[in-house]
Design a protein around this nucleic acid. Sequence first.
DNA 1: CCAATAGTTGACCAAAAGGTCAACTTACAA
DNA 2: TTGTAAGTTGACCTTTTGGTCAACTATTGG
Lengths: 216, 216
Amino acid sequence: MTELFMSDNKKPGTTRKSGIREANTRQIIAAAEALFSEKGFNGTSTQEIADRAGLPKANVHYYFKTKQDLYSVVLQDILQGWQKDAEIFQRSSDPEEVLRSYIRAKMEHSFTRPKGSKMWAMEVIQGGPVMGKEIRKALVSWDDTVLQRIQTWIDEGKIQAVSPQSMLNMIWATTQYYADYDYQIRILNDNKRLTVAQREEAIEDVSRMILHGVLQ
Amino acid sequence: MTELFMSDNKKPGTTRKSGIREANTRQIIAAAEALFSEKGFNGTSTQEIADRAGLPKANVHYYFKTKQDLYSVVLQDILQGWQKDAEIFQRSSDPEEVLRSYIRAKMEHSFTRPKGSKMWAMEVIQGGPVMGKEIRKALVSWDDTVLQRIQTWIDEGKIQAVSPQSMLNMIWATTQYYADYDYQIRILNDNKRLTVAQREEAIEDVSRMILHGVLQ
DNA sequence: CCAATAGTTGACCAAAAGGTCAACTTACAA
DNA sequence: TTGTAAGTTGACCTTTTGGTCAACTATTGG
């Protein structure tokens, strides 16, 4: 993430002045992620971001040339989080173990930090108007890595012969759903947030259905 | 759907003047659905909607008091489409047959008319700021109907004992994904739209994984 | 044919929003 | 201590936008 949010800014040569730049930058990004995920790009004003970050609007523009720049940086940040969740695919070669761990990580991610997922979803739904080439590249290379691993499982006869992309899509779709659609889930749960027990049940159910669905 | 989009308007007592009102109304709704799904509520201007519908802006406001009213009507329309897809649950009691048909209907719906799904997704992601009570009610009652049917399958031992809501969530999540995330799917498919064959493969894969995952 | 209702539309307005700027303050290296 | 770079900020500008309105035309029932 470092060096990213300074890309097109008047970045100082070396970091000085204690950590003012970094501290403010972080606050702005956090505020932006929250607001963009709640109200979308167009629904969020730079003024609101500034207020939430506790700074005057002009200060936000001092660190991020435009609203789009800021948005783009936040998106990049989010993708990195998911890439971490997927490191499991490299650490083990047992499909059941990997899938269980991955689904759990992804589901917990969805429950505890849904904001990023929502923001990403809205960007993708709208056809990636802001998402830049770099982000797309990162996405593709991450996808490739995971697909390769799934393919080896198929070659070894460990799992069903479905298209690896279809399988990954299903995992992605289902786990993201618990973040993106949390509002709908709440409506269909008597207007109550899922309890910890319900979350655990959801993780179990999703794991069971997917594992049962793809293992031989 | 009839009578809905006139709710808070100066509706004429009886329909006269050939079908001017209905024709214009339909055009506006179609334009609105397309634009809202591409750019969200805040990203779409009434002027754009008017242009796409081939009318002056003031005319749009003549039929729909506010942008929100229009948005709300379109949402309602979308939910109705999905309710139709789910009628299958009432027409057969064999889980394999029902699920196969439903998944296919939903997937084809996603491929051929992704706009509605996208608009719905954005609304839900943002916490349903416009969605009214009626829409929520319709959603809940539709959900209940489907859950009951799934529960009977469980009681009869025809499918695995997962929570019916978890199961429906997975079906929903996965099928909607092919509409909402079509842009991401394209990126991960060499930047090419899925071919008809690929769509068919996706439908097959999704059906197989879900059926294999939930049937005994 | 005519009055009344429905539909049309250009002009207009106030509010909001993204972004700029120049003056100002703070921090630090030497 | 002091010069310079970094950071701060209120005021301002321009554009966009949702919505209004009054004047106008078209349609239709009687």
